[in-house]
Design a protein around this nucleic acid. Structure first.
Lengths: 195, 195, 195, 195
DNA sequence: AATGAATGAGTCTTCATTCAT
DNA sequence: CATGAATGAAGACTCATTCAT
């Protein structure tokens, strides 16, 4: 009697891989370590993933769909766009705070774009998608005169950079404390609020 | 004279190491590669550095002194603190734009703090030093009512996170274009300018 | 009925094994490959053969009985022994031409006698059996003065060596063309025909 | 003080490889085994050969030059072509008897031409070169009416097949005994001597 | 001081074999 | 019986480190 069904086992391995790659980087993470972390034997990893590189690919890209779903889920602009932006920022930071392990691995990939070209491209694409998703809200707030007239793409890009920077620089902090409240508030400044 | 020449060779190896570690990460960078990049023979690397880890340690920490010198060189507050802050931001971004290779390696270390504990601590310390360096300027500007009253440490931390985020997320962009002008302007928003 | 069907499956696996071992050698042939070639699942191979070595053993030895039946089926000497020898040679080459795949595997075994000792011995034994089978015909032809007086064992051995050599060296050739006609004629020279 | 010079070490490894591949085939031969046989450490093999396949390539092809030099060294036809052919056969068999290990490996390659395509082609080429080398002698003997008029290419090919067959089928025998005298004599029959 | 051959620990990967379904 | 997931032994290969020249 199998303790777990197949897909569950695959998922366990994938999560173990994210954890291990995140802590150790690609080369320093070993299949042995990942297998142990996942509670399976060494060879079982190869039952679910062709090779180490495929496992890495899956670890980077598969969770990305969910990340996109959350991060790009931007509401239609209402008459209170500022409130909407603040809520969105809150949601984003909350999500990042929950996904520190995965995000760290993402930043690892972004930091070595030539080396991890194949994984990098879809991540880079995300930058553009975020621009498109945020633009209506930014434009609306600007039209209402509630934030200053900055180029929406720049706002989006700097906002994303900020999120990355915070989660890179203050990983431990963000995870525990209520400090991400602070980061949420400061992030809003990048949208250029008046007064 | 001989010492002079030797020191040049050591420096070449160190620069090659920064370049190679930055592009490939620690484990994936090989001594052979570094030696080739430095134009020295394989064994010569071991004449100047005990082992790979020592070389990495040196590559991470030795340039840090210069980075600190530049980044922590904050002027005494004058009666135009806003102008001073803007100039400072400009200097910081300019410097980061010139040091992308080294900075990328720094971010690589920051992203794996448990793995590179020994290298991480001095970098983490820098966060605190930046707080202390920026505080007088921030306080002065707040006292003059030119920026809103945010906790100076938070301003410093988010500002640093932003720099890191930008240089992580837009490495290529920053290096080439005039886009870092944009980032410079947006960075100032994090200080909470009024209107 | 079930047994009948089973035996067919066993035979398919055996033929697939011969094919695969012949092309790839023992170590480079995989059970997976053989199973695929046989159109059965991976695990089924182990239903019919204990392990890889047993499968190889069966692939080498089981068809050997038929080979012997054909190769050692030498007629009683008549008054036209030359004609009989020529017919025999023709039959032998024809058979070899049809069994190239199996023969190649046999030669593979013969080429590594220490490694495949267990399989080699029965094959080596065949040399002796062929001597005994051919001797009467050779002696008869010699007595009639139609071939020169060579040691019958030597004739038999060199004849066998020749067959092996031809099928090793000209596998592709032999299979297609009418070239084995040539080889048949030249083989007869080894019996020492007068003029 | 190095016990051996570099080229000597490379040669030791190459000879060990020939020995090991010859006895075990490609896949079953291990680098470890070869290294041990050569009296060097495991990693040293990789100092002289990129990888296992390159080592195999070298083991097959490098000695081929000498084989060609000996086998294709056919004298200009004199007025005693028969004697020349006999001497040549003797030289060939003697050489084969001395090179059994290498020859066995060659036959291993020939037996798996698709698998070892890269190594097979130069060996196959040798067949053609032998034809060209033997032709003048065969033609001369035919013109003098001392051997029957067989197609010279066929004579060459069957002669080569015979050599291969003998060394495949009677490796042990040939090595020790004076039995190769017998094979030498019988080989001559393939040239079609009259009476 | 500079060099690069020698070494072997550590990794990925393959694959025969086992065994639960 | 048939299947294929799980396992881990074994092998190729990489590369930091040592050390003789």
């Amino acid at each position: 009697m199998a303790i777990q069904k197949s897909q569950e086992k695959r998922e366990r391995i994938l999560q173990a891989a994210i954890q291990t790659f995140s802590e150790n980087g690609y080369s320093n993470a070993t299949i042995k370590q990942i297998a142990k972390e996942a509670g399976v034997s060494f060879g079982t990893v190869f039952t679910y993933f062709e090779n180490k590189n495929d496992l890495f690919q899956a670890a980077v890209l598969e969770p990305l769909e969910e990340v996109k779903a959350v991060m790009l889920d931007v509401p239609e602009p209402s008459e209170q766009p500022i409130e909407q932006i603040k809520m969105l920022i809150k949601k984003h930071f909350q999500y990042f705070a929950e996904q520190t392990t995965y995000m760290r691995m993402i930043q690892y990939v972004i930091g070595q774009p030539e080396r991890f070209q194949k994984q990098f491209l879809p991540l880079d694409q995300f930058t553009i998608e975020l621009r498109d998703a945020l633009r209506p809200l930014i434009v609306k707030a600007q039209e209402k005169g509630e934030i200053i007239n900055l180029e929406p793409n720049d706002v989006s890009d700097t906002y994303l950079a900020f999120i990355n920077g915070v989660s890179l620089t203050f990983t431990d902090t963000v995870k525990n404390s209520g400090r991400w409240d602070t980061f949420t508030q400061h992030a809003f400044l990048l949208f250029g609020p008046k007064q």
